[in-house]
């Protein structure tokens, strides 16, 4: 059981987390741009998250918090 929380307001939609996620469960949300105009990352299948924090490790904006 793991929780991966993304602060979508801080996200710049760079996609480094999407690229890094070993489970392939992150995607950029092109339909819900944030206030800055970026497509924020979101979890597509939260239940598959293993809490490895690789996404947060690669996030340049500290927008991801991970609990396990």
């Amino acid at each position: 059981m793991a929780i991966c929380r993304i602060d979508t307001s801080a996200c710049k939609g760079c996609g480094l987390c999407v690229n890094a996620c070993p489970k392939g469960i992150l995607a950029l949300d092109d339909h819900n741009l944030n206030a800055k105009g970026y497509p924020p990352a979101r979890l597509t299948q939260a239940e598959l998250c293993i809490g490895c924090a690789v996404c947060a490790t690669m996030c340049p904006d500290c927008a991801i918090t991970v609990e396990r």
């Binding site: 710049k12 760079c14 340049p60 918090t65 991970v66 609990e67 396990r68």
Partner: peptide, 26 residues
Amino acid sequence: MAVVFEKPKALANVPLHYCPGCTHGI
């Protein structure tokens, strides 16, 4: 449940001005 990753305290709670994906933030 324990926090395994969160923003460090020594990093100010302000948005970084860097371009998307710039590794300065890391």
